[in-house]
Amino acid sequence: MRLALFNQGRLGVVDGDTIIDVTDQVGSPSTGAAGALHHYIETLAEGTGPRLVPSRGRRVPLSEVTLEAPLPRPGKIIGAPVNYLDHKAEMDYPTSIADLGVFLKANSSVIGPGQAIVLPYSDKRTDQEGELGVVIGRTASRVSAEDALDHVFGYTCLLDITVRSGEDRSTRKSFDTFTPIGPWVVTTDGIPDPGRLDLRCDVAGETRQRTNTADLIFGVRELIAYASSVMTLYPGDVIATGTPAGVGPLAHGDRVVVEIERIGRLEVSVDGSQATSYASRPGDRRS
């Protein structure tokens, strides 16, 4: 099942080129900043969530609605640095996720399909990183890799946008608009094996990244096991699984597309019209 938010927070089941409004089956669109899908995932984890019946909902053409980030404010976003060997070689990193562990991104950095990545600096490179996103469905603490997928609700497309400057990863990756997610979340019944998905990322019409999740250093199972050994994972949390080789600079006017097998296509734009110099940032001591 493909679940999306649309038209100011309504929850829908995507079926071909239509979306079926099931908002009334899970409550109302005013379920807080986390959104109706996050609320639904939490109720399922509590054992009180309803069984969605798409046949009871109003069907609308996808072309007539505005899709939004399916999880506009996740509890937390966990990133996996250097989780493909080809990206490790590309960036000339001496270490990988096995040495670095995971990092956190601000949940305020999320945007949805059709929105714009806003470049903060005119003189610092900002790169795209196309990734598989994992949505947690059940509380996970110190789970084994063997049991990890039992704690997953579904999967989505994700971009981990990154400024190439000197700050900590969590700073460089947490600017507003730096985590596009969508266009929907595909539940686990639609993706029995997240370790064998083709992924492609295009920028300005050219393919920059192409991989299969089989090439992850820490696969989805290992990522969940590792992350849950550090911090408790809650329903609606999102894990960004890492990016392959092919990261590169974004420019004003670019279109960025991430497409993942069995999930879908996430497309956003790039806006550099308000970018300023790096030295003008608050707290700079050199001026």
Rank of each mutant, 00 (worst) to 15 (best):
L44Q: 04
V65G: 00
P29N: 09
S55R: 08
V82K: 08
D86V: 05
P74I: 02
V65W: 00
P61V: 01
N83Q: 14
A36R: 01
T43W: 11
T43S: 15
P70W: 00
S30T: 05
T31C: 05
S30R: 14
V82S: 07
I78G: 09
I77K: 03
V65N: 00
N83E: 10
V53K: 13
D86F: 14
E68H: 01
P74M: 07
E68W: 01
G79A: 10
T43V: 13
G79S: 07
P70H: 01
V53W: 08
Y84W: 10
R58F: 04
L67I: 03
G47P: 01
Y84V: 07
G75K: 13
V65R: 00
D86I: 06
G35T: 00
R51C: 15
A45Q: 03
E68V: 01
P81E: 10
A45W: 11
G47R: 06
H39Y: 12
G57Y: 08
P72I: 04
T31P: 02
L85R: 12
P61M: 03
N83F: 12
A36P: 05
A69S: 04
S55Y: 10
S30H: 12
R56A: 11
K76C: 07
A33P: 14
S63G: 05
P61S: 05
H38S: 12
E42Y: 14
L44H: 13
P70T: 03
A80Q: 13
V82D: 14
L71K: 00
S30Y: 11
S55G: 11
V60C: 06
R58S: 11
E64F: 07
T66K: 05
P54Y: 03
K76Q: 08
G49V: 07
Y40T: 14
G75R: 10
R59E: 13
I41Q: 15
T43G: 08
G35Q: 00
I78P: 10
Y40N: 14
